[in-house]
Design a protein around this nucleic acid. Sequence first.
DNA 1: CTTCTAGCTCCGTTTACATCA
DNA 2: ACTGATGTAAACGGAGCTAGA
Length: 340
Amino acid sequence: MELALSLGGDTPGPKPFSLVEKSQKILGKDLGFCMAVGKSSAADGENNIRCNESTGLFSADDQRRSDSSSDPPLQLDLLPFSPVHRTQPSSHKFPFPWLTEKLGGDSGRGVEGNCRRGDEGHDQEGASLSSPNSAVSSFQMDFSVFRSGKRDFEQITAGNEGEADRGTSSRGSDEEENAMARKKLRLTKEQSAFLEESFKEHNTLNPKQKLALAKQLNLRPRQVEVWFQNRRARTKLKQTEVDCEYLKKCCETLTEENRRLQKELQELRALKASQPFYMQLPATTLTMCPSCERVATTTSAAVVPTTTTTTMATGAAVVKPSKLFSLSPPRAHSQQAASD
DNA sequence: CTTCTAGCTCCGTTTACATCA
DNA sequence: ACTGATGTAAACGGAGCTAGA
């Protein structure tokens, strides 16, 4: 058995969040991820979960495929749950564009901010709908205050417009635009929260979803695309950190186990040397599946093996060895379980 | 069947911006 | 108040893959 950790990067397509039963606040972190520890096999390449392009949902086939492994993967799920989300009432739902579309409504007003200058023909409308009392709609003003320490408002506005203009063309295509200093526009909390919610639904977007989201948030589609791209990268990075931690713990466990086994082996050898007839009883082999920790006992015909072979499959196995033992790969048990 | 193209994601990198000492 | 170091996140550009013409 191999210890297979899904780092989420070496497989194409969306990642296995759909498999995970959502449990929040694992490891006490706000950001969360899932970790899948499963048996690696030649079919692993087929276990990638693909998000349905049209619905953004994971299909039952995908689920079945992912469940097809004989060893159900251990998953650590630390789902994204930002402080922003925590402040939301539990009943609060963001109006996802594709959902509102399905419901036949275009009523959800987008979160304003980083406003474009009418590059898609709806910005002016969005601006005109702004309510002075709305935290969201006050963004433009807040934005100017927010940055007033660095630049004056006119410069900022010009920067936004430049960004907006640039966004309508494909990336890096226009020399004029390239000549212009790259302005980075921080997304508002509302925009980020909205995008986070969307990301929780599905971490990739089809073009329709991207456009709808961009329209909803008053961003360029390219910005939405880049945000998801960066968000996936962040997820992967965090996942890698979690995986590393887990592997470190595995390593420590195995080292400790190895040390213990070596010690026990020495004791057994010493015992054998002092009592040469002691070991002529049939050897007992304990076989434990590391994943389910079921132990099967078999009595071998061998008498006093001259060498003891111990195979540790994973650090998950905790075996109290008696006289002689071996840890066989869970494959044996899997086959046995299958026959059960 | 091959080639071309468009569109996508991933990845590494750059850069603007915020924060802190 | 100013400054430099550092971290974060938006954005860029290239590579690779895939579907469709």
